[in-house]
Computed example of a mutant assay.
Amino acid sequence: MDARAIIGWNLRRLRVAQGLSQERLALAAGIDRAYVGRVERGSENVTIATLEAMAWALAVPVGHLLAEPEPHAMPPAPLKAGRKPAR
């Protein structure tokens, strides 16, 4: 797995685990939502500053975005479609 795919894998895994949409993550990190999608698909070369912003928004160390997944790990599942219920 190349570095862009690893970052995308981890970004999606962490984002979904926290119940964040791509839009909410992008807003918290100060980046474009479409950019988050491209990073998750592994089609963007991410700068260190952007990695740091996404890690900050997810409240995890930057290293969590760079950790290689286990060899037989299942791909991260998507969030459920639709809006969250009002609080």
Rank of each mutant, 00 (worst) to 15 (best):
V62S: 07
H72A: 14
A29Y: 00
L14Y: 11
Q18W: 02
E52K: 02
E40L: 12
V16F: 13
A57Y: 04
N45G: 00
Y35F: 07
R41D: 12
M54E: 09
L79C: 07
A29I: 00
T50N: 01
R83N: 02
T47V: 11
A28C: 02
R12H: 04
V36I: 12
V16K: 03
R24K: 12
A53T: 04
A26P: 04
S21E: 07
A29W: 08
T50D: 05
A17Y: 06
A28V: 02
M74P: 06
G37D: 10
R4F: 10
R13F: 12
D2N: 14
N10P: 06
R15I: 01
V46I: 15
A34W: 03
I7E: 01
A3Y: 09
G8A: 07
I7Q: 00
P69R: 01
R83G: 10
D32Y: 06
L14W: 14
L25C: 11
W56T: 10
R41P: 08
P78L: 13
Q22F: 03
L27K: 13
T50Y: 01
E68Y: 05
R24H: 15
M1Q: 11
R24I: 08
T47I: 12
G42K: 15
R87M: 06
G42N: 02
P75A: 10
K84H: 07
H64K: 13
D2T: 12
Y35N: 13
A53Y: 08
T50F: 03
V62I: 11
R24M: 01
I48V: 15
E68M: 14
E23T: 15
R41L: 14
A59S: 12
P76S: 00
K80E: 13
A57H: 02
A77W: 09
I6L: 03
W9H: 11
H72V: 09
E40I: 04
S43H: 13
R83K: 15
G63T: 05
L11Y: 07
A86G: 01
D32G: 08
E70N: 01
G42A: 12
K80R: 15
R4E: 09
Y35M: 08
E68L: 12
L14F: 14
V39N: 00
V16I: 11
A3N: 06
E23H: 14
V46R: 00
V46H: 00
A86V: 15
L58K: 09
L65A: 03
K84G: 01
V16T: 12
Y35A: 04
R33F: 09
V60H: 08
R41M: 09
Y35V: 05
A29G: 07
I7P: 00
L51V: 02
L14E: 03
I6M: 07
V62L: 09
G63M: 05
A34Q: 07
A28P: 02
Q22R: 15
A55M: 00
A28L: 11
D32R: 12
R13V: 03
Q22C: 13
H64Y: 10
V39P: 03
L58Q: 07
A77S: 11
L25H: 12
G37T: 06
R13A: 14
P85T: 03
L14K: 10
L51Y: 04
W56Y: 05
G82N: 06
L79I: 13
Y35D: 02
K80C: 05
P75T: 01
L20P: 02
G19W: 15
E23F: 03
S43L: 13
G19A: 01
R13Y: 12
I7L: 09
P69S: 01
P76A: 10
G8T: 04
A29H: 12
